[in-house]
Write a protein that binds this DNA or RNA. Structure first.
Lengths: 263, 263
DNA sequence: GCGCTGCTCCGTACGGTGTTCGGTGGCGGG
DNA sequence: CCCGCCACCGAACACCGTACGGAGCAGCGC
C-alpha cells in the first residue's frame, strides 16, 4: 500500500465518490474510465495552482497530487516542465478578447481599440504575475496558437485603419513591447508584494524610508519619490500612467505615418 | 580529507600557488588571509558563470566550487540565492555608460542621446540573456544603486532638454518599458537559440516550415512570415527595428509635449 | 472467448537543488 | 597568552525534475 490510505478513493482509478466504510463489498472497482488525465486538464490545474500559490509552488508532484495522479503520470501528456509552462502561458493569452476591427477606419475608433487591446493584455498579465517569470524560459511565446490569434486580430485592426502589413507589424511591436516591458516591472512589484503578504499601501510606506535614504545621492529620483509617491499609489494611478504611455506611442505611430506619407 | 585532493591548494585557505609534491615542509601553511571571500567577488563570478553556461547552470554549489569555496560559505556574504541574483542584475546594469547631458538642449542632440541610452540598455540585456529570466523574481530592480544611477542620468538628460520632472519620468518609463519588453522577447529567442546550439540562420530555416504551417489560419501572420522572414534575419535587422521603435516613441513624446504646450 | 498490442498510469530511484545547523579553527584584541 | 569572534564548511534535510520498467486495462484480430 502506498501513502494514499484506503479512506480515499484509490487515486489511480477514479470513480464516483463512494462514501461509507471501505469493505470488500462496497469498495469501488478498479476500473480505469478511459484516459483519466488530459493535457487541457493539466494545463488548467497548473494555471490554477500558479495563480493560487505562485511560481515556486508549482512542482510536478504537487500538480499531480491536485489531479489525483502521480507526478510521473503527467509526462504522458506533456514532454517536460518547460513545455507545460509554455502551454500554460499560451492558455492565459487565450483569455484575451480579440479586437473587433469594425469601424476602425475612423482613426479615433482605431486609437480607442488599440488602447483597449494593450490594456487587456496588461490586465491579463498582471492577473497572473507569475507569467513574467516564465517569459524568458519559454523560447517562443509568440508561436503559441492563442498568441497568434491575438496578433492576427491586432494586425487586422491596423490593416482596416489603412496600415500596410509592415507598418502594422512595427506598430504592433511597439505597442506590445511597451506593454510587456511595463507589465514585467509591475508584475515583479506585485509578486514581491504578494510574497510580503501585506497591503500595497502598508508595504509601500514601510519601504519608503529605505528608498528615500537610498536616493540621497540622486536629487531627481529623490524629488520624484518624496513628492510623488503618495499620489502615485492612489488607486489606479498605475493604470493611468500605463494608458498615457500607450497614448504617447500611438501618437508616435501617427506622427511617423504622416511624416512618411508626406515624404 | 575531502574530495578536494592534496595536489590542489587546500581550498579553504588560499595562499600563493605551491607547486611540487606535498610534504610536511613545503605544504602551505593553513593561514587564512583575512576574509577569503567577498560579496563583489561572488557576484562577479556568478555573472561569469551565468554568461558562460546560462541560468540553469547557476547553483550555489557550482558557484562555490568556482571560488574554491564550499557552497554554504556563500551564505555569509549573501542572504540567499534570490538576493544574489538581484545583486548580479544590478551589477550588470552597472556596465551601462551614463548619459552625458551636455548639449541636450538641442532637441536633435537629445533625440540622439535618448536613442543611444535605449540601445545601450538593450545591448547589455542581450549580452546577458539570462537577465530576463530573472527580472520577474527580483522584486524591485529599479532600487539597485546602479539602476538608480542610470535613471538619474536619463532624468537629467530630459531635464536639460526642458522637461519637467513628471514629464521626464513618463518619457523615461515609456522608453524603458519598450526597451525592456522588446529585450525580453529577443532574449528569450536568443536563449532558445543558444540551447539549440545552432547558428541563427540554420535554426530559423529549420523552424520556418513549422511556423508557416502553424500560421495557415492567420493570413496576415502567414504573409508576414513567408515574405519577410528571410529579410528579417539579415544581420542587424533586429537592431534596426528596435531603433525605429524608439524613434516612434520619441516622436510620440515630442508630439504630446507640443500638444500640451499649446493647450 | 482469448491473447496480443498499445497506452495510460505510477513506484522507485537517481542525481541534483537551496538552505539550516553545529562545529572548527585561524585571527585580532585584550 | 588566551579568549572570543567570525568566516568557513561538512553533513543533513526536504524537495525537485524526470528516466525507467512494470502493471493493468481497452480494443482489436482471431
Amino acid at each position: 500500500m502506498t501513502a494514499k490510505s484506503e479512506d480515499e478513493t484509490p487515486p489511480e482509478h477514479r470513480v464516483e465518490a463512494q462514501p461509507g466504510i471501505a469493505s470488500p463489498w462496497n469498495r469501488p472497482q478498479k476500473r480505469r474510465t478511459q484516459p483519466a488525465l488530459s493535457r487541457d486538464q493539466i494545463v488548467a490545474e497548473a494555471s490554477a495552482l500558479l495563480d493560487a500559490e505562485g511560481i515556486e509552488a508549482l512542482s510536478m508532484r504537487k500538480l499531480g497530487a491536485r489531479l489525483n495522479a502521480g507526478a510521473t503520470s503527467l509526462y504522458t501528456h506533456v514532454a517536460n516542465k518547460d513545455e507545460l509552462l509554455a502551454l500554460v502561458v499560451d492558455q492565459v493569452f487565450g483569455q484575451l478578447p480579440l479586437a473587433d476591427p469594425e469601424g476602425a477606419e475612423d482613426l479615433a475608433v482605431w486609437r480607442e481599440k488599440i488602447l483597449e487591446c494593450a490594456e487587456n493584455t496588461r490586465t491579463v498579465i498582471l492577473r497572473h504575475p507569475w507569467m513574467v517569470t516564465v517569459f524568458g524560459d519559454v523560447g517562443v511565446v509568440y508561436l503559441g496558437p492563442n498568441w497568434m490569434r491575438v496578433s492576427e486580430s491586432m494586425l487586422t485592426l491596423m490593416e482596416v485603419a489603412g496600415f500596410g502589413l509592415l507598418e502594422a507589424n512595427e506598430a504592433m511591436s511597439a505597442i506590445m513591447g511597451y506593454t510587456i516591458g511595463t507589465a514585467c516591472v509591475e508584475a515583479a512589484w506585485l509578486s514581491a508584494l504578494n510574497r510580503s503578504g501585506q497591503d500595497e499601501q502598508v508595504w509601500l510606506s514601510q519601504l519608503l524610508p529605505t528608498v528615500i535614504e537610498a536616493t540621497k545621492d540622486f536629487p531627481r529620483l529623490h524629488r520624484l519619490y518624496t513628492t510623488e509617491v503618495q499620489r502615485e499609489v492612489n488607486e489606479g494611478s498605475r493604470d493611468g500612467s500605463f494608458a498615457r504611455g500607450i497614448k504617447v506611442i500611438i501618437s508616435g505611430i501617427e506622427a511617423q505615418r504622416t511624416a512618411q506619407h508626406k515624404g
